[in-house]
Each structure stands twice: as C-alpha cells, then as structure tokens.
Design a protein around this nucleic acid. Structure first.
Length: 313
DNA sequence: CTCGATCCCTGGACGC
DNA sequence: TGCGTCCAGGGATCGA
C-alpha cells in the first residue's frame, strides 16, 4: 500500500518521464473514484509543470500558455521538500491530485500497449506516450483542483514526518489521548504514514502500538520521531516496499519489504530478542509488534472487562 | 475528543 | 475446477 516512501518513489519517477509534457487528450473509464470527472476535459492542452508529493497525495501541477515558460525553470529530478506546499500551491492555477489508495499505479506507457483491465484514466501526452492510472480496487482518488480547492484540500493536513521538528512532533503526539498507532496513521497528525511504517517505527522505538500518546515520555516520543524519519528515509532510498502490488512509475517493485522487522512478520522471531512477533488489531488496523520489546500498556479504561467477541454467522 | 462499526472495492488465499 | 467466505486496507462517515 503506497505510503510516503512509495508515493515519493512514484513522484520521482514521474518527474523523469512526464515533466514538461503536454496533455493532448483525456480518456476516462470508470470514474467513481474521481471527484469531478466532468471537468477532466479541462486538462487537455495543459502542460505538466511540476510533480510534487504532499503526504500520500501526488500533485501534477498544470500550466497553460504563458505559465509554461515560467514553469520551465523548475528543477528537474530534484527532491522538493513539501513542507511549504500549502504556499507553493497558489503558484499554479490548476493541479491534478492523485491518491493511489491501496492498489493505484500511475505511469507513462507507450501508447500502442493495450490498456490493462483496471486502467481507468489515460492522458495522451505529446511524446507519443500515455500517462495511465490503473487501480483494481479503486480505493484511490483523482481530482482536478483549482488553486483554491487545492488550498482547501491541504488545509488541516498533518506535519510532514520528514520535516517535523522535535517540538512539534511532541506537541502533536503527547497532547492526545489516542493510541499511538492511531495517531501515526492519522493524516491530520502526520501526513504520509501508513500501516507499514507505523508498525516499523514502533518496533524500532520499542513502543507498543496501543500506548496512549499523552502517556509517552518525551524521550520515547523523540526516539519514535527519529526512528520514523530514519525508516522513511531508508525506505525512500530503497524505492519503497512492494507489498501487494506496489510498482513504481517504471513498473518496478521496491526493495524495502526485505527490511521489515515487524510488518507482515507475525509468528516469526523478533530480530532483537527472538520472541515471536504478534499481530493484533489496534485502531482498526492490524498491528505487528514484539510482545517483549514493546511491552503493552497497563490497561485501557474499558466499561467491561469482558470483551465481546464479534460473532460471525 | 475518541471510539468502534460500516462501507467502498477486488484479488488472492483458503476450505470444501 | 469452481464456488463461497474471509481478509486486506486508506479514508469517509456516523452513532455512541
């Protein structure tokens, strides 16, 4: 599932393949994952002036006519820190927002190659290729946004986990009574973290996923922040984790899944203490952790000590 | 504020 | 071979 490192990997790939390309026409198949498919014809004639990442979102910045020239000065293939994105947003009149959801893929494909079964959007480009969006489960999202709508979209977004300061991270985590796993996954707390990197960073920092944010010590909180940043950076270098069907913009898998220590390792020995990794549901998501290295919190306040087992008919 | 439940969607794993 | 069932999960939404 594409999280920050996977999205960053795709973005870097797209910068090499579609930056500066002009969109000639748009084809849409199924459109129930698109906010405003009826506006997509407006993309025709526009040029992809920049490709940016904002949390798990990708933004294809569009320019028409005069704007193209100005946009030509945008640095190519260079990492663009996105902490200032809310400001940068207004420099483009329009943007295409793309969220890969669980199974989304986007890439520049030679036009003569037949569409795949679940390709739902295809942009014809001026280099004879097509920028295609493929997404079997359609948990992804696309939207054509004016600068104004994009600003609204981005409003209230969490901090960039790679840029967040020690102070801000602490403030965002230690003032909350939610469990840390939920906080890490909450895009209004941090933008870009998903299930894999939440579990990996908690394992690294030896924090149980059900611990409550406000009950973490400052030291634990900063250990977590450093672990998260280090893991995300390493994952980016390895071009993300290929679980299920993540492929980058060149159709190639990432390598970071080989380095997972908790995620997907239920029943396997912890790399630190050999205790078997466990999987439980926290915040509605499966959470992998070492029961020894990541001790469970005392107890959570609950109305009934007996928990109801969900019945299945 | 925080929680759990539910829904969206489809492929893949598994049981029979 | 084929069918039914369950599960995965990001995010929105709703009621408690």
């Amino acid at each position: 599932m594409p999280e920050l490192p996977e999205v960053e990997t795709v973005v870097r790939g797209l910068r090499k393949t579609v930056l500066g390309r002009k969109i000639l026409s748009v084809w849409i198949g199924k459109s129930d994952f698109i906010d405003n498919p009826e506006e997509f014809p407006l993309l025709s004639g526009q040029t992809i002036a920049a490709v940016e990442r904002f949390g798990k979102f990708m933004l294809l910045r569009l320019a028409s006519g005069d704007e193209v020239e100005a946009a030509a000065t945008v640095e190519v293939g260079q990492f663009v820190a996105d902490t200032k994105a809310p400001d940068v947003v207004r420099e483009y009149a329009a943007s295409l927002l793309v969220h890969l959801g669980m199974t989304g893929q986007i890439a520049s494909i030679a036009a003569e190659i037949p569409l795949e079964k679940h390709t739902h959007v295809s942009f014809t480009l001026d280099d004879g290729r097509e920028l295609r969006y493929t997404d079997a489960r359609r948990f992804g999202r696309m939207a054509y946004l004016t600068a104004e709508l994009l600003a609204k979209e981005v409003e209230g977004a969490g901090a960039d986990p790679l840029e967040v300061s020690a102070t801000e991270f602490s403030q965002r985590v230690r003032t909350r009574n939610s469990r840390i796993k939920a906080l890490l996954l909450d895009q209004s707390v941090l933008r870009g973290v998903g299930n894999i990197y939440a579990d990996e960073s908690l394992w690294r920092s030896k924090i149980h996923p059900a611990r409550v944010g406000s009950k973490l010590s400052e030291k634990e909180t900063q250990t977590l922040r450093r672990a998260l940043q280090d893991i995300l950076n390493r994952a980016i270098v390895m071009r993300g984790s290929s679980i299920s069907d993540f492929l980058d913009a060149n159709g190639e898998p990432g390598e970071y899944q080989r380095h997972h220590r908790a995620y997907g390792r239920e029943g396997k020995p912890c790399d630190r203490c050999r205790t078997l990794i466990r999987r439980v549901i926290v915040a509605g998501r499966s959470s992998h952790f070492c029961p020894k290295c990541q001790p469970a919190p005392r107890q959570r306040k609950s109305k009934r000590s007996t928990r109801k087992l969900r019945k299945r008919s």
